[in-house]
């Protein structure tokens, strides 16, 4: 019963949250007014005015980017947790997001660019570094402990994150003005997002998210173990590579636009799993929607709680995430020792 309810509630809840986030802010606007402005914006009959400028130029692109980033991060977390049968796996805990940040920073420092596409160089480097980090972490984890025990892979991720962070600090110190602050890369921010950012995120989520959603059945088999998945008829290598590539592209795009926003992919799939169970054919789409809602609310808290000071969005997600990490680790350990 609770399952069906959550399933049907998520899309309208997401729409309402988006509306709320567009309305709320340092200049609050009523929902009716907001809807009118949105309608005028859609039909191209703008009347001019400060409300319109705030909503159409500032808040709407930001809200769209936040929703799409939240959806992507959460979906990536859910997919990695299935692939590695490890409920603690996530872009931030494995260090994949840090790797992507390093790639993005390197691209800026070295001035890697594609002609005509101003952000493409940063983005591609972030994706490549995300894939490289994921491959490195998995190789190390397999070499140390084939069963991919919960602790081992997370430890490797932590060490890798620290290593990458120090490299990032080094680069930023020497690069000076060229690069956004270290806060942006370690805690993330989606203020100043544009429609181009939103469109890029939407494109990545459509392609890579679609590929991940289609693998729900295969990830269920993976959740029983890689060998078991092979016996059940899953093309293990193909599925693994697809998930790794899709996750890397999505994380690369998210990181180059919004920096490293941690723990979304850890918290949301876990909560969704509590309600819907571990079936990835339901878990993946539900995590996608719930992740968007979660990050929208986190962003809302970040920019209204101590207004006019804006908290980095990663501060809010990490506060929730750290607590969730402990809970999941505790439950997973207890289950492990009970068997």
């Amino acid at each position: 019963m609770a399952r069906k309810l959550l399933w049907w509630c998520l899309p309208p809840v997401l729409l309402l949250t988006m509306l709320l986030c567009v309305c709320a802010g340092s200049v609050p606007l009523s929902p009716g007014e907001t809807l009118q402005i949105l309608w005028r914006g859609l039909t191209g009959t703008e009347a001019g005015g400060s409300g319109e400028a705030i909503i159409l130029r500032v808040r709407l692109p930001r809200v769209l980017c936040v929703a799409l980033t939240g959806a992507s991060l959460s979906l990536c977390g859910a997919a990695m947790q299935g692939l590695l049968r490890n409920p603690l796996a996530d872009g931030s805990t494995l260090g994949v997001s840090s790797g992507a940040s390093l790639g993005a920073i390197l691209a800026i420092v070295l001035g890697i660019q594609f002609p005509g596409l101003p952000f493409a160089g940063t983005m591609v480097m972030a994706m490549l570094f995300a894939f490289g980090s994921l491959a490195l972490i998995l190789t190390l984890a397999y070499a140390l402990d084939r069963s991919l025990a919960t602790g081992t892979i997370i430890l490797i991720g932590v060490v890798f994150s620290m290593f990458v962070s120090s490299l990032m600090n080094l680069l930023i110190t020497f690069a000076g003005e060229k690069i956004k602050s270290i806060t942006f890369w370690t805690l993330g921010s989606l203020s100043g997002s544009t429609y181009v950012n939103a469109l890029t995120l939407l494109l990545a989520l459509t392609v890579c998210g679609g590929a991940l959603l289609a693998l729900g059945g295969a990830l269920n088999a993976f959740a029983l173990g890689e060998e078991q998945a092979r016996h059940l008829g899953v093309s293990v290598r193909r599925v693994k590579l697809t998930v790794m590539a899709a996750v890397s592209v999505l994380l690369g795009v998210c990181v180059s636009i919004g920096g490293t926003i941690g723990f979304v992919g850890l918290v949301i799939p876990h909560m969704v799993r509590l309600v819907l169970g571990p079936d990835h054919r339901r878990l993946l789409p539900a995590s996608l929607l719930a992740g968007a809602v979660f990050l929208l609310l986190a962003d809302l808290v970040g920019r209204t709680l101590l207004s006019p000071v804006e908290l980095p969005i990663g501060v809010v997600t990490s506060l929730v995430g750290a607590a969730a990490f402990l809970v999941i680790f505790y439950r997973s350990r207890k289950r492990g020792s009970a068997q």
Binding site: T150, G225, G277, P278, D279, Q339
Partner: peptide, 9 residues
């Protein structure tokens, strides 16, 4: 050698 980390039905 089957993982039961996730609580399937």
């Amino acid at each position: 050698r089957v993982s039961t980390e996730y609580d399937f039905t």
